[in-house]
C-alpha cells in the first residue's frame, strides 16, 4: 500500500541573484579579454603568470633563478637564459628579465664590434624588465655587474646597436665589457 505522494517543488533561484552573478561573471570575463588584448601573451605560462602578477602573487622559481645566476657568472649565457626562462616562464619578473638582458649584452659584446641581433634581443628583455616593474625601472644590487639599472643597460645596448662615426675610433678596442 502506497502513501499519498507529496510533490516537492525544487527551490528556484531568484532572478535578481541570477542577474547579479551573471553581471559579475560577464564583467570579469570582459576584463580578462581586455587584459589579453593589452598584454598579448603568447603562451599559457604567460597568461597564468600575467594574471598572477596583476594580483601580486607571481614569484619566479628561486632554484632555477640561482642556476641561471651561476651560469651567468660563468659566462655560459645560453645556459643561463634557459635557466632564467625556467625561473620566469611568464617573463614577468623584473630582476630575472634584467639578467636575461644583461646576458644578451655580455654575449653580444665584442672589442671591435657588437652583435646587433643579440643586442636587439637584450633591448627587448630590458624593456620587458622595465615594463614588469611597478616603478618602470629596475635596480639590481649585484657587485659582479657594472651596470645596475635598466636605464644604464638599455643605453649601453642602444649605443652598441647604433652606427656612428665614433664606432670607427681605434681606441674602442681598449674598451672593457661592463
Amino acid at each position: 500500500m502506497s502513501g499519498p505522494s507529496v510533490a516537492v517543488a525544487a527551490p528556484r533561484v531568484p532572478a535578481t541573484a541570477i542577474r547579479a552573478v551573471g553581471l559579475v561573471v560577464s564583467l570579469a570575463y570582459a576584463g580578462a579579454i581586455g587584459w589579453v588584448y593589452l598584454h598579448q601573451p603568447q603562451t599559457m605560462a604567460e597568461v597564468r603568470g600575467g594574471l598572477a602578477s596583476s594580483v601580486g602573487v607571481y614569484r619566479p622559481d628561486p632554484i632555477a633563478f640561482s642556476d641561471g645566476l651561476r651560469f651567468f657568472r660563468q659566462d655560459q649565457f645560453v645556459e643561463a637564459r634557459l635557466a632564467f626562462d625556467r625561473a620566469d616562464p611568464a617573463h614577468r619578473d623584473p630582476t630575472t628579465q634584467f639578467y636575461v638582458a644583461y646576458s644578451f649584452y655580455r654575449q653580444g659584446w665584442g672589442r671591435v664590434y657588437a652583435d646587433s641581433a643579440l643586442y636587439a634581443r637584450g633591448l627587448e628583455a630590458a624593456d620587458r624588465a622595465a615594463a614588469a616593474s611597478p616603478t618602470g625601472h629596475v635596480v639590481v644590487d649585484d657587485p659582479g655587474l657594472q651596470m645596475h639599472s635598466s636605464e644604464e643597460l638599455k643605453a649601453e645596448l642602444q649605443r652598441g646597436m647604433s652606427h656612428e662615426l665614433s664606432n670607427l675610433n681605434p681606441m674602442n678596442v681598449l674598451r672593457t665589457r661592463k
Binding site: 541570477i18 542577474r19 551573471g22 560577464s26 570575463y29 570582459a30
Partner: peptide, 18 residues
C-alpha cells in the same frame, strides 16, 4: 529568461569579441 540575458548572451558575445 534571466539566465539567457545574464549568462548565455553576454558570455557568447564576449567570446566572439575576444
Amino acid at each position: 529568461p534571466p539566465g539567457r540575458e545574464a549568462f548565455t548572451l553576454p558570455l557568447a558575445l564576449l567570446t566572439v569579441a575576444g
